[in-house]
């Protein structure tokens, strides 16, 4: 689904600039791209160092949500990587063709997260962005870091409980392990489905902070969220008694 929305957005935004100015813009953007590309990077790719440098110069912190907005805009295939194709296409789509105009666009990109649809797009994008192939899911620490980044101000009351639950779950999985068995540690992983459903859950929880209407029996939530709600409820009961 995220794929589809992305495509339609691009179509809408790719404005028909005249081919002359188009060529000029391409040259200017290529120049910016090459400035940050490292000789050790793969062809037509900006690697980790270049990305950090680039964001720094744009005045964007790597641990800022807007970094993800940029990554999504430029179709970054994985963490801290830009491709030339995505870079050109992305900036052109919002009529940006110089480093200065990139810098100027940051505030707009930053505020775009306030829009729910945009946020959802960025949120869903983040899963693939953060994923390390061939794994199909996110390791827990990485998922938690991104949740913290993205959900701040949106899920404040429950996020700590959710993290606590996940960490307990990991502990439970490894409770039989002895100290030396670090290699055998089994991590909790967050699947794409869980990632996607959590956003819906955030919306649900904001409307029903006590999670009273959550249907354990017949709801369509993934099992992990069912277990979370059970955890939340038993915790709640303990607090009451």
């Amino acid at each position: 689904m995220s794929r589809r929305t992305k495509k339609s957005l691009l179509n809408k935004q790719s404005t028909s600039s005249s081919s002359a100015s188009g060529a000029k813009a391409t040259a200017a953007l290529n120049a910016v791209f090459d400035r940050f590309r490292d000789s050790s990077d793969a062809p037509d790719t900006i690697g980790q160092n270049g990305t950090i440098e680039y964001l720094e110069e744009l005045g964007v912190g790597f641990d800022e949500p807007v970094a993800l907005v940029i990554a999504q805009l430029l179709e970054s295939p994985s963490m801290a990587t830009f491709t030339r194709e995505g870079f050109l296409k992305g900036w052109k789509s919002i009529n940006v063709n110089s480093f200065d105009s990139m810098k100027a666009a940051i505030p707009t990109l930053r505020s775009s997260l306030a829009d729910n649809d945009t946020f959802k797009r960025i949120y869903l994008f983040t899963f693939n962005y953060a994923r390390e192939p061939p794994s199909k899911s996110l390791p827990l620490d990485s998922a938690m870091a991104y949740w913290k980044l993205l959900l701040e101000g949106r899920f404040d009351t429950l996020l700590p409980v959710w993290f606590e639950f996940l960490e307990n779950m990991e502990k439970e999985k490894n409770k039989d392990l002895k100290d030396g068995d670090a290699a055998k540690r089994k991590g909790v992983v967050i699947t794409k489905d869980t990632w996607g459903c959590l956003l819906d859950f955030v919306k649900f929880a904001n409307e029903d902070p006590g999670l009273e209407k959550y249907d354990l029996e017949y709801g369509s939530w993934p099992t992990i969220l069912d277990n979370f709600v059970k955890y939340f409820r038993s915790k709640h009961e303990m607090d009451l008694s």
Binding site: S137, D193, P222, T223, I224
Partner: peptide, 9 residues
């Protein structure tokens, strides 16, 4: 539900 989770995955 667990089975559905697996099939989604």
């Amino acid at each position: 539900k667990k089975t559905i989770d697996i099939l989604l995955e």
